[in-house]
Structures are given as C-alpha cells and as structure tokens.
Write a protein that binds this DNA or RNA. Sequence first.
DNA 1: GTCTATATTGTGATAGAC
DNA 2: GTCTATCACAATATAGAC
Lengths: 205, 205
Amino acid sequence: MVLQTETEEKIIASAEKLFYQRGKAGCSMQDIANDAGINRTLLNYYFRSKDQLFEAVFRKAMGSFVPSLASILHSDITFQEYVPAMVETVIDTLIENPQIPTFVLQELSSNPARMPQIIREMGINPAIAKKKMAADGVLPADQNYDSIQLIINILSLCIFPFAARPVIIDILFDGDNDAYIAAMKERKKLVPGMVKQFMMQNPSK
Amino acid sequence: MVLQTETEEKIIASAEKLFYQRGKAGCSMQDIANDAGINRTLLNYYFRSKDQLFEAVFRKAMGSFVPSLASILHSDITFQEYVPAMVETVIDTLIENPQIPTFVLQELSSNPARMPQIIREMGINPAIAKKKMAADGVLPADQNYDSIQLIINILSLCIFPFAARPVIIDILFDGDNDAYIAAMKERKKLVPGMVKQFMMQNPSK
DNA sequence: GTCTATATTGTGATAGAC
DNA sequence: GTCTATCACAATATAGAC
C-alpha cells in the first residue's frame, strides 16, 4: 500500500461512506467534501475527476474480497475443505463490510461489463476453479451444470443476506441488529451443511 | 387499473427502463423524455415532479411481486406445499422481470426505511407468516431462530441469482443467456429440495 | 497543498402561448 | 395536452492567488 496523505485518506473515507450509501450519481463532490470537512476543489486536486474518485473506491471495494476468494478458489485443498473455507471467508468479510454487496450490485446494474472484467483482472480464473472441482471427483469435468448451480447456491446463501440487510433486520429480526449479526455468524456453519446436502442430493449425471 | 393516456404509458415505460438500469439519481428527466420521444415538460405535467414519477415506478415494481408473495404467505396450504409454491412464484416473477431485485436493493440502500413499510402496506404480515409455520408443526412457536434462517435461505436462493445476473451470465455461463434462463427454471425444483434438506437437518431446538 | 473566483453546462420545475 | 421560454440553482471542473 502506497503512503497516503491525511487529506487523501479523509477523501477516500467520505467517498466510500457516501458512494456506498447513495451510489455514484446519488452524491455530489460537494457532499463528499462537506463530509470530509475540506474544500471541494481538493477532490479534483487529488483525484482529478469524480469518475476517477469513484473508480478508486470501487476497486478498493472489490479488492476487499476478490483476492481472498481467488486464493481459495485456486488453492490445493480438497473440495470438502474448500466450501467451508470459502463460506467463512466471504461471511467474515461481509460482517466487516456489510454494504459492499449492495454497492457492487448497484454499480453492476449501470455497468454490467466492468465487474466481470475486474474479477478476472484480480486473478480469478473461472476455468481453473471449475477444473479444480472436477479434479477432486466431486463433479465430473464433462458435466458442469451442477457445479454451476453449486457455486450459485454458495454465493446466494452468503451474499444475499447482506445485500438485503435493512429489510431482513427490520422484518425478520424486528430491528435487532445484534441478533442479525449473530445469525450471520451462525450461517458460517449452516451454509456448508446445506451445500453438502445439495451435493449428495444432486450427484453429477 | 385506471385508464392511462398513451403519453403517460410511454413515460412510465421509459422511466422504468432507465430507473431500473441507473437508479433514481442516475438518470435525468431529460433522459427519460428523450427515451420516450416526447417533450420534457410533459413529465412534469403528468407526474408533477421527479420524486412522484419515481414513486410510481417503485410502487409498480413492488406491486409486481409482493401481492403474490403475500397471498402464499397467508394462505391455508400446509408448509410442505408452501415452500415450492413460494419458490415457483418468486422465480417465475423474476424471470419475467429480472431487473427488479437490483432496482429494489438499490433504492433500499439510500432509503432503508421505505421498503419494509411498503411491504407491510401491501399486506404482508410477518407475525401471521411466522404463526403459520408454527401451526403446521414444522417449527415451534416459542423458537423462531431456525424459521428465520429458513426464510433467509429461500429468499437468498431465489433472488440473488437475479440480483447478480450480469456477472453470473458472464462468468459462470460464458455469456450464454439462454443457458442462464434454463438454469433458473431448473432452480424451481432444486431450491425446494435444498430447503427440505435444511429443515430435516436443522430441527427446531 | 489549499484557497477564491469563475466558466460552463445541466438540472428540476413553472408560466404562459397555442 | 403539448409546446417554447425562462427561472433559480447545482453540478463538475479549472485557473490562478497565496
């Protein structure tokens, strides 16, 4: 990590906060400057344009979870260890940074092409991940339909509860945030169990 | 449904398209007018303000799935029939309207309080739904922890694959949209199977 | 590095002619 | 119902003083 000036850090912190909450178009440079308690023109001095400031925030957000995912996806552990490791990593990351899913999905909707591109840039190779699952004998190489559903299930069960966090806390937990967090931690054990069941129930054809 | 003028319909169609894609702040009244091929001031004539136009679009989006969910949640079928019915309804709705999850989650992030409010307005009563699950003996009334995880699982498995649609199609289906749709239809059987396993594996304590 | 001042364009909204 | 003209204001961005 490159050393940053104090001002630069304040800008990033405020930009993250506001972009996460309201999206790229939902807040102005002035809003960010106000939140950071600095002059608005400093944002242009440090990041040149709103686009480039947003880009910095977006890449930082992606960088907070893609590399850890990538290392697991490409590691040498067996598939049986693989699923709990992935689930734990993702959920722990999201407990720390619960707003990331909504933020990323939001950007995804106005710019569908960019996220897959960045994921690849950051070192996730779908082909390698699929081959790994095949190599462990969990799923055969010539039939990847179920393995795709498996990945979709894992990601859904881990990420969605954070993407829909406000409604879930309000409707299902009657506003109790601590109970919500506890339930998310519980899911680190729950989800691998469900996924294991899924694999037994849907053997590769 | 009230009869609408042709112009009004064009406005709603374009507003839906652009709000879904870029969010409320991500497109201007001018953008919408251009897309509809009409004069910008007509938007104000028909909907008075951007806020009210957005409100109309948002409520229409919620109205496309909340009532069907509500009718199942409060129906008299047993819990065993309940899950597949709910899954089928949700997935079918989302195949028709795949952009709704992202759109709703987006708005949710800038305005966390409004969605739970509208859900209740539209007739979903969380207390009734929980009691129903208890009454069928699936889960006891005095212990609703597992029933909450169950609901989270169902919603996650049904909704997330649509919220993350662009990445999933690109990374997991190599851009093949038809394969994606086929997989989503397949999930109408897959998801209830997983959920059933979950209930057997995690009996209420 | 930080400020003031300013250029330029875009925004939502309304009044009033037709 | 639909248009033109116009309002007041907010946006991003840059030039230039300190």
